[in-house]
Write a protein that binds this DNA or RNA. Structure first.
Lengths: 188, 188
DNA sequence: TAGATTGTTAATCGATTAACAATC
DNA sequence: TAGATTGTTAATCGATTAACAATC
């Protein structure tokens, strides 16, 4: 007896992700995933539809500026490829570093950013410099045509309205944790 | 003429943070900040009240496990002190690393975690190891009494219900950026 | 056909905003 | 006192959930 196609219901999905089943159906419906009434969602199709919706099939090129500890950590992080990203370049301004390797990448001169962004079709820029250099790096990314930027530097940067910047703020993450410390102290 | 005490209105605050003035007043009222009708909020008081509410006066001790690039980046990050945190220890299991320095800290043996957590009153643990080691590190933190954990490893960890874990997921950050890439492509 | 589960509409809930009496 | 702005209530808005006809 051949295995029947594996399916999963909105109720089961809701259990797994901790949501209401109506919410699951609404969201899946919104992104065009096709369920079957009385049966559920085909796991294989769902997987394809979700990967498509999340853009995991795209293979966006990513460039990092700043070849310090953080830049090295991001380059060696691995795991990005599974989500459809390709670490394509890392830049620095320090002539001592330029030319040496981090993982598979050779550290390149920040002045070569525009050319390399174009040649390697880089869509996402990561700022891994100290705060003092962040705005300059962002300006260079923007001038090179990069419109999606992830900023690890602890500073707010200005960009045109068609450019998206996300900031990973480590101090904020710690502060959110301390909310719970407060709260637990008060009640415990 | 002595300067009058500096004040700021909820409308001005709303402009700065990009919210509605009613929202600002409600939030400030909730956390007990005292405004003056017809005048506004005293800047000095507000600063004190906010620092208090955010717990910036606490000086929580922070320990990092994992003395790789990421651990080093976090240790050297600076900036944490301004928000009331103190980087108190960094641990690793690699005997080659133990005893050497990163910034002001000496890398210590992970086996000494329980003693050092107690002695230095560490409230927050940071996991900066590969995914494979994350659960073990979290278990050690929990066993040592740490109840607030920030996890940089790309893995989900299990903890008792009285322990709070926040995960900084770099792949997710990149994926959120790609949403805009999709969207812009579709409309532009 | 009977049972199950989707897709979607209507009802509910909560969060944001407008409005205004209190009052400096 | 007149003008300004808070603190809070009521109105609005949007998001979540319940309910159910459609249908496999």
């Amino acid at each position: 007896m051949p295995p029947s196609q594996a399916t999963i219901s909105s109720e089961q999905l809701a259990q797994i992700v901790g949501l209401n089943s109506a919410q699951v159906r609404k969201d899946l419906s919104y992104l065009g995933a096709a369920g079957v009434r009385g049966v559920g969602y085909g796991v294989a199709e769902l997987r394809v539809d979700l990967r498509e919706a999340l853009g995991l099939t795209h293979g966006y090129g990513v460039a990092i500026v700043g070849a310090g500890n953080l830049g090295a950590a991001l380059t060696n992080y691995g795991g990005f490829e599974a989500w459809g990203f390709e670490m394509s370049a890392i830049f620095d301004t320090d002539s001592e570093k330029i030319g040496s390797r981090i993982g598979d990448l050779v550290i390149e001169d920040l002045n070569d950013l525009p050319r390399i962004v174009e040649q390697r079709d880089i869509a996402i820029g990561i700022v891994a410099t100290p705060a003092s250099g962040a705005q300059d790096v962002v300006n260079r990314f923007v001038a090179s045509g990069v419109r999606s930027i992830l900023n690890f530097a602890p500073s707010i940067v200005q960009v045109p309205s068609d450019v998206v910047v996300r900031r990973v703020d480590l101090s904020t993450e710690l502060q959110i944790l301390t909310y719970h410390l407060h709260h637990d102290e008060a009640t415990g």
